[in-house]
Design a protein around this nucleic acid. Structure first.
Lengths: 128, 128
DNA sequence: CTCCATATATTACGGTTGTAATTGATAGTG
DNA sequence: CACTATCAATTACAACCGTAATATATGGAG
């Protein structure tokens, strides 16, 4: 049961790019992150760290590398939220949801989707 | 609009103690954290860092200090969840909730409480 | 007034993170 | 075949974090 790597915020941005489309070269990743205004060097560093942590893997294509995720986005999201839930919220999911809703950025559609989730988890204790 | 300080996990544990009861002396905080098996020195360091970050404040009582929170727990929780929501979930509250529920640790009571929250946020767009 | 127990303050040290620059390897260009 | 543009690898460095140890100040016991 391989442990999920612990990755930082900046590293997460890089993972998002590769989760969205894989494999990608370092330069493609850099291009996808243009909006971050990071030096390409910085992004290369982040990529290397992610490889070191086992979050990214690569195949050599001649001189360049093709990077792909080595961990699933959903698992990482679960790890993140689970940590918060256990750590800061002591398992109180409704308090976590309260804080999320308090940001005031949640649309009616999101609220409906959450209602649907609750219904699903109410009938059977887990996912459908 | 004072910015919320950014505090680490270990520091959060200390804040929890002071949020639960304030003011408290350093020694009372240490006692409350006995279960963490941290050296008292370590806890003093965390307290000092929290003061430096503006998360704790103190009043001198002779030679000892009485520490109190300088930021509210709710605000800090909101900052935490809001950051996650904007950062990793791109505003998709229902996906955040999904990941929370997937941990499989959520009781029926929690689910009911969440339903109540949804209802509240559906009628008026914010807290009552 | 002196000494000690104890409270706070300062310093330590290796690992992580943000943010890069420098170095080393190599595929093409001429 | 020598040179350069470009990859990836190594190194840098300050701030933050976990985890303390050491130093300094001071109220109270004699």
């Amino acid at each position: 049961m391989s442990e999920l790597p612990r990755i930082s915020d900046a590293e997460w941005r890089v993972m998002e790019v590769v989760w969205k489309k894989a494999p990608q070269t370092a330069n493609e990743i850099v291009a996808a992150l243009a909006a971050m205004n990071w030096s390409p060097k910085t992004i290369k560093t982040l990529i290397n760290r992610l490889v070191g942590k086992g979050a990214l893997q690569y195949d050599k294509d001649g001189r360049t590398y093709l990077y792909s995720p080595a961990v699933e986005q959903g698992s990482m999201e679960q790890g993140l939220v689970g940590g918060l839930l256990r750590g800061a919220f002591k398992g109180s999911a409704h308090r976590l949801v309260l804080r999320a809703l308090e940001t005031g950025e949640t649309s009616r559609e999101e609220l409906d989707a959450i209602k649907a989730l609750i219904a699903r988890f109410e009938t059977d204790g887990s996912g459908e």
